[in-house]
């Protein structure tokens, strides 16, 4: 019975990884790059773009959260020990970039050059402060190397 439960759990984890997590992991890399290009577009055009970053925070939050909270899916993190540090570092990165894009979008909602410059400076400050805080947090509380030792 226990063995069958194990097999089912592992199968569920493999399916979830191939169907969902694989894409989430890729998007965790490419979404911040896309948001960076959005910032460039806002600066060049002088107009706001859509705030897609918020939707990405939600989507990633849901699927990463499920993968970590459901015990069967959590096995992925033990089989792929790099995955937890990867997710734990890149997800906050997406949040930081999304907030930066939101700030700049807000600044560019009104066509005023001084307002544009002000919000660009605020965005740069937000990026530097957030990244610095992230560095301090991860240097004080290292991301644990998880996995490689579960016998399932």
């Amino acid at each position: 019975m226990g063995k069958l439960k194990n097999v089912l759990g592992n199968t569920a984890a493999v399916i979830y990884f191939l169907a969902v997590m694989w894409w989430i992991l890729l998007m965790l890399i490419f979404v911040p790059i896309g948001l960076f290009f959005d910032i460039n577009t806002i600066r060049e055009s002088g107009f706001s773009t859509l705030n897609i970053g918020t939707a990405f925070i939600g989507i990633f939050g849901l699927f990463i959260g499920l993968s970590l909270l459901i015990p069967a899916f959590r096995k992925m993190y033990y089989k792929l020990p790099w995955m937890f540090p990867f997710v734990k570092i890149l997800y906050p990165n997406v949040i930081i970039m999304s907030i930066a894009t939101m700030l700049l979008n807000y600044g560019y909602e009104v066509q005023n050059p001084s307002r544009h410059s002000l919000f660009f400076i605020i965005m740069i400050c937000q990026l530097i402060v957030s990244r610095a805080l992230m560095c301090i947090y991860f240097s004080r509380k290292k991301v644990q190397y998880i996995g490689g030792d579960i016998n399932e």
Partner: peptide, 27 residues
Amino acid sequence: SDKNKDKPLKVFGGICVALFVATMVFI
């Protein structure tokens, strides 16, 4: 020991789901 190993994963998972709920409420 397994529970202790799972703890950071569960905590981070909880934060992720909370962020999902917060973004949905915001949207």
